[in-house]
Write a protein that binds this DNA or RNA. Sequence first.
DNA 1: GTCGCTGCAAAGAATTTGCACATCC
DNA 2: GGATGTGCAAATTCTTTGCAGCGAC
Lengths: 155, 155
Amino acid sequence: MDDSTRQRLESFLEKKGLRHTNQRQAIIEAVFGTDRHFTADELLVMAKEREPTVSRATVYRTLPLLCASGLLKELDLGKDFKYYDPNYSKSPDHNHIICDDCDKIVEFTSDEMKKLEDKISHQFGFQLASQKVQLRGTCEQLKHSGACENKVKCK
Amino acid sequence: MDDSTRQRLESFLEKKGLRHTNQRQAIIEAVFGTDRHFTADELLVMAKEREPTVSRATVYRTLPLLCASGLLKELDLGKDFKYYDPNYSKSPDHNHIICDDCDKIVEFTSDEMKKLEDKISHQFGFQLASQKVQLRGTCEQLKHSGACENKVKCK
DNA sequence: GTCGCTGCAAAGAATTTGCACATCC
DNA sequence: GGATGTGCAAATTCTTTGCAGCGAC
């Protein structure tokens, strides 16, 4: 967890009158101790490694808090559960490419895309507030080699 | 329901060895009797108007069938329930702008967007298979008038 | 008559919540 | 000491499924 994140978090907790507890601390460290996207369940496991008394309920109660702070972003990838993205505050406009074969998620940013989104929104009489772009496809590698190298890396 | 839809549906049902039942017929007519996006629950109501014996289970069993036929598209708008889009087969590449104030959904297509998606996918070594672009914002109308005209139209 | 279809009610699965106890400040 | 936080288990909500009877072909 970098200093800027720690500081923003600190001031958020203070402003909201939220207390420091061991459980909350463990969850926060788990969240910002990775740059991977994770589910509530995965976070529970990661947090428990740091503080075994963390319960599922506390994880579920903490996640919306962190999202409200703007430091964590809820991701809807079309599964029946939510993912969370701890990289969001560093690049708020980033979008995702998801591999159809191995579910690997690659983040990308594109000024060109942003401009186009703005243009289209205006065409339809909207003021763009947020965007979600999810591209899905197969690794071209897979097409050539017959096996997606990423399959190994990401379950 | 237009003839092309009816025909594609007919051949799909036949190929799969699926039977014509009153319930299934009522659901199908309800699905393609509107061009609005709907939820499973809304579809149940619409189908029951045509055939009161339609049950929730049958609706839930029919929706995946229609999606498999390619004539209906499941939409994930980030709510805890799914939406379905009966306009999908007419314009498979269309995307959505969603009003943050009234949840109104506007469909759009953009060649420019499509090309950009392809370009970005290739940059990251992917062969684009499908895309989901959801723009959110406020009606500019709302900003000026203080009230979104659409609020009336869409619950 | 054979299978697929249906309704009902119960089961699932992720997430939320009520409550009594614990704990931070 | 008092408000906030926590764990547990039960509740919620959308969706799926087992089962016994029904109906299309």
